[in-house]
Design a protein around this nucleic acid. Structure first.
Length: 552
RNA sequence: GUCCCUGUAGCUCAGUGGAUAGAGCGGCUGCCUUCUAAGCAGCGGGUCGUCGGUUCGAAUCCGACCAGGGAUGCCA
């Protein structure tokens, strides 16, 4: 159920009748927007159409509003249509519709609120952290954002595929191999140094020790170059396993793990480069191969093949996106990147054009960086410098649910200050528990009813007439609009705000209304109501990738 | 220098053309004989970065400026 469209149509029809009566000139119809009033007294929906029309016609807004309302056809589920100064039309949902929605929710279960916004195939690629080290908190933010968006887009009807791009090719790998080998030598008491451009973090040493524990000095027994490659492969594998484990702990699953190397093995990389060459977008100069993006709106050209013959990250990303759109035929691709990848956005858009792919189909969400603090102390998150706070540590300290909720509560394009000290200290008062507690409370009520052997399947929802009861239904009914908003704007942060609102409304209801009481028929009606609330709460939590606990 | 993001309550943040600008945390008052007090009810708290413009109406749109962060690699 989405009333907005119906209400907009009703307003348009009414307006047409008003015009026929000659009350108003031939003013062109502004877009009829249906809004949610801020205050409960103003009903469930509102339109400022009269205010907009007043400007075009020169009539008084209140006169326009009254004329429109007088000509509006009665609607079954709308109880009241009223005019309010300075020129709003307010709609109030009927109590019958609200209460009957309780039965609808109970019947629909967790599919309640799903909509058919779009059924296209969309891929969401996120995290895609290099397998040269553990994921850090910034990856965690992207992971939570991406997985939540995937849940919501599915609920909105899209065919969603989630993907992790494994950068298992390229120059960073080489640097990691050599760093690991050097640490391995050191741990075995040999003189060795981590390369200048290498990974100096302690985790590399820890990894080397772990390898020694399992394989001893095996990699020193082979020719050095072979040893570097072999231990490198193993190290990457172990890091990748750790990454998958961390993501699993965070509640993040991927449909596909896509290997960068596979682009080279399959010949797709060469094909894509050839296509750019055929299009005349390539130049050879200074011993390197360039993509001539400056002629396509970028402010400079970009290197595809370095003078040493190795491809750049940009080049394989082009092939990767060619694969997404042309081979796998996704209608839409959403990439979620950290703000440090911002310089990559424009050239990817430009290259889509060069490949004959509509750049609008590639949506790039940049999520701003996470600054970590412990109290006043800033924590650096650079992978190569050494000291990092990993996603794993964050999960150990804060827990996956609180972690997800905090990440989700900020819009992607605002930087966030994550104070570990505060997150841990406040964990008991965290809004995440407030929401989950509402779910646990309902579960407790339902257990109570079960112990008393109450069968409320025939409960009469029309008995739900008090304000706390109806307010709860109103909030539940809003979930489809929340799903629509998140799906269209691609901004999952609306979800935790909705979850909190729903929980607040429930807790308030709980305080005011005894569910299981001496009044049999009222008990049954209210049991239906709280069961519906539990379903919507659980759905909201699950969309956010969080647990809906029965006990706390 | 150029480009992107941000600036709203003591703190962390929602709200991006409409009605009296909201939430959480922190502070202060009350509330557990009844299904979970991880809760409820209330109080206090604001030059919406600054200045100008557009509009019947601006935190929201436009311009300039100030402040913080990021990008500007033959790194990814």
């Amino acid at each position: 159920m989405i009333f907005k469209k119906q209400l907009a149509e009703a307003l348009e029809q009414s307006l047409a009748r008003v015009k026929e009566q000659g009350i108003m000139g031939q003013a062109n119809l502004p877009e009829v927007a249906i809004e949610k009033p801020a205050r409960p007294g103003h009903g469930d929906y509102a339109s400022s159409l009269p205010l907009k029309l007043a400007r075009l016609t020169g009539l008084k807004p209140m006169d326009v509003a009254n004329a429109i309302v007088k000509n509006i056809a009665p609607m079954k589920d709308i109880e009241k249509i009223s005019v309010a100064a300075p020129g709003f039309i307010n709609f109030t949902l009927s109590k019958d519709w609200l209460t009957s929605e309780v039965d609808v929710i109970c019947k629909a279960g967790e599919s309640y609120g799903n909509i058919k916004l779009d059924d296209r195939a969309v891929q969401i690629e996120f995290v895609s952290g290099n397998p040269t080290g553990p994921l850090h908190v910034g990856h965690g933010r992207g992971a939570v954002l991406g997985s939540t968006l995937a849940h919501v887009l599915r609920a909105a009807g899209y065919k969603v595929s989630t993907e992790y791009y494994i950068n298992d090719a390229g120059s960073q790998l080489e640097a990691f191999h050599r760093s690991l080998f050097a640490r391995y030598q050191q741990a075995l008491g040999k003189e060795a140094e981590v390369p200048a451009n290498g990974y100096k973090g302690n985790y590399v040493l820890a990894l080397a020790k772990e390898i020694i524990g399992a394989h001893g000095d095996k990699y020193l027994q082979m020719p050095q170059e072979e040893g570097i490659i072999e231990i490198g492969k193993l190290g990457i594998q172990m890091e990748m396993d750790q990454i998958k484990q961390d993501l699993k702990t965070l509640g993040v699953n991927f449909d596909e793990w896509f290997s960068e190397q596979s682009l080279f093995r399959s010949g797709q990389f060469d094909q894509t480069m050839q296509r750019l060459r055929d299009g005349g977008f390539i130049a050879e100069r200074e011993n390197a191969t360039w993509f001539i993006s400056s002629t396509l709106g970028d402010d400079r050209d970009n290197v595809l093949i370095r003078s040493d013959g190795t491809p750049t990250y940009f080049a394989s990303d082009i092939a990767y996106h060619y694969n997404k759109f042309v081979d796998r035929k996704f209608d839409n691709v959403i990439d979620i990147w950290g703000a440090d990848h911002q310089g990559h956005v424009l050239r990817m858009k430009v290259v889509m054009n060069a490949l004959g792919i509509n750049p609008d189909k590639l949506e790039i969400m940049i999520c701003q960086l996470v600054t970590l603090r412990r109290g006043k102390e800033l924590v650096k998150i650079s992978k190569r410098s050494g000291d990092i706070i990993t996603l794993r540590e964050l999960l150990d300290e804060v827990g996956p649910d609180a972690c997800r909720f905090v990440f989700l509560s900020r819009s992607a394009d605002s930087q966030m200050d994550f104070d570990l000290e505060l997150a841990i200290k406040q964990s008991a008062d965290n809004p995440v528990y407030y929401v989950q507690y509402a779910h646990a409370r309902i579960s407790s009520i339902l257990r109570n009813a079960e112990e008393k052997g109450i069968d409320f399947s025939q409960g009469d929802v029309s008995l739900l007439t008090s304000e706390p009861e109806l307010t709860l239904v109103r909030s539940m009914a809003r979930i489809s609009e929340v799903i629509e908003t998140v799906a269209m704007s691609r901004q999952p942060h609306h979800l935790p705000f909705y979850a909190q609102d729903l929980a607040t409304v429930f807790h308030s209801f709980y305080k005011q209304c005894r569910v299981v009481s001496d009044d049999d028929s009222k008990s049954k009606a209210r049991l239906k109501l709280v069961q519906a609330a539990r379903l919507v709460l659980a759905k909201t939590l699950h969309l956010m990738g969080m647990a809906a606990p029965d006990k706390m």
